[in-house]
Amino acid sequence: MTTTTSVDVPTTPETKPGRPPGRRAGVASFAALLLSPSLLILLLVIGYPIVSALRLSFIKTVDGVDPDTGLVTHSSVFSLANYIDIFRGDTAAAFRNAFWNTTTFTIVTVIIETTIGVCMALVMNKAFRGRGLVRASILVPWAIPTAMSALLWRWIFSADGVANDLLRANILWTTEGFQAWLAVVIADTWKTAPFIGLLVLAGLQIIPAEVYEAAKVDGSSAWRTFWRITLPLVKPALVVAVLFRMLDVLRMFDLPFVLIGPQKKSTQTLSLLAYNDMSNLHFGPAAAYATVLFAYVAVVAYAFVRLLGADIVGRGVGGGR
């Protein structure tokens, strides 16, 4: 969960108009002073690693082995080679495959999870006996660490596991192929649909009951009420939930790693590709993959914010228009 922690970047408080200029300057510098420790920490734990990773991605290392002693010889130069290799030769195929998996995982899981999550929220929002129990039980998958749930799903999807028993089939889920991709989608949906459900529920609960009463008086059908009232009013919460999920899936790592295995092409994501390179000591290419993934995440997030006006720092939706 590295992404969510750094979302609340403190923005400099806006100074209200109409204050005496001298005092404003004093307040601003005092505010800067108060913020400096957190800015310093952010610089240290976010700024430095990013710059370091960027620098690393431009270093091309050529390894050789000394034929007499067997010792490794390194030579490093600054170049664009790591980035060029992403689009050329064998590594290009691996990159395209990982990029495709990352993208399809993101699109498919987010669509399914949003649909199920909204349904869950609508159920949880209704007043009925045992509502508390339903809410708690829906959240259980979200509370289980991904690596654990991946292990549980690995048992379910094993050759003699529950999934095959239920389907009366003998599918080898964890082998290369579409079924491995599907297994990841199923496990991910199970785990994170409740997350969307929870955020949407919070959005549903602030919709005033009067709006629904008015709709009822006007004779609106349940379907129309959902599309015309519930969805527009819950949109701010929903958009934020979907954005978080997208950022999460784009960097998906642990689920395919544990459930299917790190070397499988069918479920290899960009994070896994970077990890594999890093564990084989190819730091330059690994950093290049990570940088590309970073750019991809940033572009998707930016486009999403521009298109749907996601309000992630809580200023109210209408503010920017």
Binding site: T3, T5, T11, F294, A301, I312
Partner: peptide, 9 residues
């Protein structure tokens, strides 16, 4: 701030 969040990746 979205980009800052993405940086965590």
């Amino acid at each position: 701030s979205v980009i800052a969040g993405a940086l965590g990746v």
